[in-house]
Design a protein around this nucleic acid. Structure first.
Length: 332
DNA sequence: CATGCGTGGGC
DNA sequence: TGCCCAAGCAT
């Protein structure tokens, strides 16, 4: 219950002309999403919708502490929810706090990471756990600056932890929120690539004043972007703010800017690195170079990829021609 | 600011 | 079938 659903009529919010929100000048948005008595006519319908359809995700449970939230946020960087779920559960079962993870070799984190992708995230999460033990007595810090100082934690993740773990009123902008705001508020098909200070101010203006409700609203915005205001084919019919969506009211104009650069994967060093690391991950201990050779035909690219893994600390050389995940040395 | 960095599912 | 996309970060 977030209060004041009663008595809030459509007329009470309809006086906000969506067209008036399609602006450019700084300050156009200031206060535009707050009525005189402090209500947030954008957040409220989204919160109501969230209460009805929100997915039950383990990191949203009350018993999920800051460490669990941090782990989930790092895993969710560029990786879909469904693939994260099983690894998240296994990870926290084995390492229920930062100290438990920090006590093991980083290679174990890389192995547990499995096929989530971008395995350097596992390495950085291990480094973050170590730093949390050393600098913060094993407790995940509750402020932006300390979080940002941890490896693998950037503006999104730091804000997500303060909001979702510590229930602070902080704007949280991920790709979903960026797209939602670009459409609903700015009337454009997609937002700019980088998060600007103005974006933060705009999103903060959408947040209810109460910290707990604001944290919930941040989750609700992300959920709306993930489930309804999706990139490809948005399901506007089920959107709680469709009546005031600037983009919809403008006739859903297509993206104006240049098309995004194609991602490309087949045949790249990334793919080769993935192949090689999969071999190391699935082995119990050190592996001989011949096993890695079998993972990719082209030797120049294979060597370059392997060197990259070594440089990044994702793999180590035990002896000439013998490789392993960091920490697998003792096992062999 | 552009680029590199994994992986797999959906359309 | 390819192509697009997914709760970003570091350099």
């Amino acid at each position: 219950m977030n209060g004041n659903q009663d008595g809030r009529t459509d007329a009470a919010v309809a006086h906000l002309p969506a067209a008036g929100l399609v602006g450019d000048a700084a300050g156009t948005f200031g206060g535009a999403h707050k009525t005189e008595d402090g209500e947030r006519p954008f957040a409220e319908p989204v919160l109501e919708w969230f209460g009805l359809v929100a997915r039950e995700l383990p990191w949203r449970r009350p018993e999920a502490g800051p460490w669990a939230v941090l782990v989930s946020e790092v895993m969710l960087q560029q990786t879909p929810v469904n693939r994260v779920l099983p690894v998240y559960e296994a990870w926290l079962a084995r390492w229920p706090d930062p100290a438990a993870l920090a006590a093991e070799p980083s290679g174990e984190a890389v192995r547990m990471w499995g096929r989530l992708g971008y395995p350097r995230r596992a390495l950085r999460l291990h480094q973050a756990a170590t730093a949390i033990v050393e600098r913060h007595g094993g407790a995940v810090p509750d402020n932006l600056d300390d979080l940002l100082a941890l490896p693998g934690i950037g503006t999104y993740t730091a804000r997500a932890v303060t909001a979702f773990a510590f229930r602070q009123r902080q704007p949280v902008i991920d790709v979903n929120v960026r797209r939602l705001v670009a459409r609903a508020i700015e009337g454009r098909a997609e937002g700019p690539v980088a998060v600007s200070r103005k974006d933060l101010a705009l999103v903060e203006d959408l947040l209810p004043a109460d910290a707990e409700t604001a944290a919930r609203a941040s989750a609700a915005f992300m959920e709306l972007g993930a489930l309804v205001c999706v990139a490809r084919a948005p399901r506007c019919a089920g959107c709680p703010v469709r009546e005031r969506c600037a983009w919809l009211l403008a006739g859903s104009p297509p993206a104006d800017g240049p098309a995004r650069k194609p991602q490309g994967y087949a045949g790249t060093d990334r793919q080769v690195r993935g192949r090689l690391l999969a071999v190391l991950r699935e082995a119990d201990g050190p592996v001989h170079a011949t096993l890695l050779d079998a993972a990719w035909d082209e030797p120049i690219q294979r060597d370059r990829a392997l060197r990259g893994l070594l440089d990044d600390g994702l793999a180590v050389v035990l002896s000439p021609g013998v490789f392993a995940l960091p920490g697998d040395a003792q096992a062999g």
